[in-house]
Write a protein that binds this DNA or RNA. Structure first.
Length: 289
DNA sequence: CAGATGCCCTGGGCGC
DNA sequence: TGCGCCCAGGGCATCT
C-alpha cells in the first residue's frame, strides 16, 4: 500500500536518522525479501545482501517512485521496495522486541537497528551499483531504468504530460498506476488525483484537451504534496507505519478512496465503487462525469 | 506492439 | 467457536 507519499515520508525520516551511520551486521531471515539475488547456493542470498551492506556508511537517502535508495559510501545503493505491506522500523537497540514477519535486520555500530517487516512478502531489497552515465529513468539504478515520470520533478510539466497522454488510448486510472508511465502512484492516490482533477477513470489518455491535462497535472502535484505533508495514508488493513511505527494522517483527507456510498465532499452525490482490472476504484459520478 | 489479464503471497474480516 | 472464502495490490509474466 505504501505509495509515493508514504515512501517519501520514510525517506525524509531515514535521511535525518541513519545518514552517517556505519552498518555493523545484517541478518536475513526472510528469503523472499532477497529473491532478486536468486536461489544462490552455498551461504545463500542473505549472505549476498549482508556482504553488500556490512561495513558501509549510509551517505544519503533518495527515492525514485516507490523505491527507497539508501546511498552507501563507495557508490553502491541499497534499494528497498515495500510492496504492499512492507515497513521499515528503526529500533533503538538490537534488543528491542521484534515485530512478527521481520525479514531483514540491519544493525549499526551505535546499537540502533533498522528492520524490514513485511507480512505479505511483496516487498524486496537488494544492493546494486549505480551506472556511470545516468542513462534511463532510474537515477542510475539499472533495475529501475524502466520507471516513468517522477511526479513531483520539475521535468514533469503539463506539456510533457500532454505529449505522453496523446500517445495512448489507455484509461486514466490504470495509466496513473502504471509505473512505466509515471512512478509512485498506486490505487489510492490515483483515485484521489482523478477526483481532484474532475476526470473520469475511464477517459482515454489521448482524449484529454489541454485544460484537462493542466488540471490533471495540478492535481497530481497538489494531492501528492498534501499527502506528504500529512505523512501519508494509513488504512485499516495494510497498516502503513513510519520509521517510528506511527500512523500517517492523510486517510482523514481522502475524498473518494474507501468512501463508497458516502456523500461526495464537493457535491454530495454518493461515491461509487467499481472494479477496474480486478481492483477497486472509487469516484464521484457527478464531479467526474 | 499496445493493452489486458492473471498470478504471486498472507493476514484480517466476514458469512454461515 | 470455527472454518473457509474473499479481499487488499505492486510488479511482472504471459496472453490477445
Amino acid at each position: 500500500m505504501p505509495e509515493l507519499p508514504e515512501v517519501e515520508t520514510l525517506r525524509r525520516d531515514l535521511e535525518a536518522s541513519i545518514v552517517g551511520r556505519r552498518i555493523e551486521a545484517v541478518a536475513v531471515t526472510g528469503a523472499r525479501t532477497v529473491r532478486r539475488y536468486g536461489l544462490a547456493s552455498g551461504s545463500g542470498p542473505g549472505a549476498v545482501l549482508a556482504s553488500g551492506l556490512e561495513g558501509r556508511v549510509v551517505v544519503g537517502v533518495g527515492r525514485r517512485g516507490k523505491y527507497l535508495l539508501c546511498h552507501l559510501g563507495g557508490g553502491d545503493v541499497w534499494v528497498v521496495h515495500l510492496g504492499m505491506s512492507g515497513q521499515l522500523l528503526l529500533a533503538r537497540s538490537t534488543l528491542d522486541v521484534e515485530a512478527p514477519h521481520t525479514h531483514v535486520r540491519v544493525s549499526f555500530f551505535d546499537g540502533a537497528e533498522l528492520r524490514f517487516v513485511d507480512p505479505r512478502t511483496f516487498g524486496e531489497c537488494w544492493v546494486t551499483r549505480v551506472g556511470g552515465d545516468g542513462g534511463g529513468g532510474g537515477d542510475g539504478v539499472p533495475e529501475l531504468a524502466h520507471l516513468g515520470f517522477e511526479p513531483l520533478d520539475e521535468a514533469l510539466n503539463p506539456s510533457r504530460l500532454a505529449d505522453a497522454l496523446a500517445r495512448t488510448r489507455r484509461a486514466l486510472k490504470p495509466l496513473l498506476c502504471e509505473q512505466r508511465f509515471i512512478a509512485g502512484i498506486g490505487n489510492i492516490y490515483s483515485d484521489e488525483i482523478l477526483h481532484a482533477a474532475r476526470l473520469r477513470w475511464d477517459r482515454p489518455g489521448s482524449s484529454l484537451v489541454h485544460a484537462e491535462v493542466c488540471r490533471l497535472h495540478a492535481s497530481i502535484v497538489e494531492i501528492l504534496t498534501a499527502a506528504i505533508d500529512a505523512r501519508g495514508s494509513s488504512l485499516a488493513d495494510s497498516q502503513y507505519r513510519d520509521l517510528e511505527g506511527q500512523v500517517g494522517g492523510y486517510q482523514l483527507a481522502h475524498r473518494v478512496y474507501a468512501r463508497e456510498g458516502r456523500p461526495c465532499l464537493v457535491c454530495g452525490t454518493p461515491i461509487v465503487r467499481i472494479r477496474v482490472a480486478g481492483r477497486s476504484s472509487f469516484f464521484c459520478p457527478r464531479c467526474q462525469a
